[in-house]
Amino acid sequence: MRGDPGSRERHGEPHRVVVLAIDEVVGYDLSIPPQIFGAAKRGERDLYDVRVCGVDRRPVRVESGYTAVLDHGPEALEDAQTVIVPGTRARGPRVDGVLTPEIAEALARIPPGARIMSICTGAFVLAAAGLLDGRRAATHWAHVDAFRRLHPRVELDEDVLFVDDGDVLTSAGLGAGVDLCLHVVRSDHGTAVSNLAARSCVVPPWREGGQSQFIERPLPETGEGSTAATQEWASRRLADPLDVAALAEHASMSVRTFSRRFRAETGLPPGAWLIQQRVSHARQLLETTSLPVDRVAAEAGLGSAASLRAHLNAAIGVSPLAYRRTFTPPAGTTR
């Protein structure tokens, strides 16, 4: 990830996030970053300073039939540490695969080292700027054919919720933008802060970026035939030797039926979901406790320190000790 998300915070200043609204902006996408990052606090202290700007000082048309008057012009980008481009239906990037001069001039104001993100079809803007060439990226599944036609050099993954490629992060549509913003808060400040932000916004606290966009029943029914009760049961017993057969037995289903219904409700196979939950719990323990790494692995149901190391490295590319150091304040400071 380019830059240091915590650098301003260490100097007593919140991290500066600037949302660039382009004409025909998707209103839902535009509202996500101010809500999520605005809810990220440590005590009463804001961790992010979120500003919304346009490519000029004029009001911005919203694709759903109204106009937004923004507080800032493109000069706000010059002090940005993170820039977020919401989805847009602007013809230049969306249809022709090119930037208008106004959009190009606005993007040129972004300082070197800034983290750059897109939500939904905002990826078309980043791709038209050449920022996604040779990189993995995500966008809304309904627009993948047009995206591939316009930007064949981008490694588009049509199935995932979001892609974290270090200094450039992209998400699928709408709700996946919430997932991406919470992922960034979690990466910057840990599980406790991101969970509080999610609770404040009344949204699920965490979905893995690699989870499928294609979920048949995103909100599981709690009645007969649902796996929701088993998900809750398993999430409280991650240290136990659970496997798919144990989950199916709890749900009173055959393994085949349970696996099919579980994937329909969560977008993941049961085994992958278990690993995801265990890695998430291990991360929280590493952030919030001083337990030895082998004990963290056991508490999370991952068995050994070596297993935890392998799974954590696969998920986020760091070792348990390196991850813990990220969330350990230097001596003499408080977080």
Rank of each mutant, 00 (worst) to 15 (best):
V185Y: 01
A114Q: 03
A192Y: 06
G209D: 10
V168R: 08
T191P: 00
L107R: 00
L150S: 03
E208G: 07
N195Q: 14
L174C: 13
P152H: 08
R94Y: 13
L169R: 11
V202A: 13
A172F: 03
R109K: 15
V193W: 06
R135I: 10
A123V: 06
A104F: 00
V203W: 06
L99S: 00
G210Y: 05
L126V: 09
P205S: 13
A176H: 02
G177T: 10
R115T: 07
T139S: 14
E208Q: 11
G92T: 01
C201V: 14
G134H: 12
R91D: 11
F147S: 04
I119H: 00
S194N: 08
V184M: 01
G122Q: 08
S171D: 08
G190M: 09
D164M: 10
V203A: 13
A129K: 05
V185W: 00
D164K: 02
D145Q: 13
D145T: 14
V154C: 06
R186T: 04
T100C: 08
F147P: 04
A90L: 11
L182S: 05
G97P: 05
V203M: 08
V184R: 00
T170V: 11
D179T: 03
H151T: 01
A138E: 02
D133A: 15
L196D: 14
A108H: 05
A114Y: 09
R153S: 15
A198C: 11
D159G: 12
L182M: 11
G122E: 07
I110T: 05
G209V: 07
D145Y: 02
H183C: 09
S200L: 14
A123D: 03
P93D: 04
D96E: 15
V184Q: 06
A90N: 04
P93G: 05
D157T: 08
R149F: 10
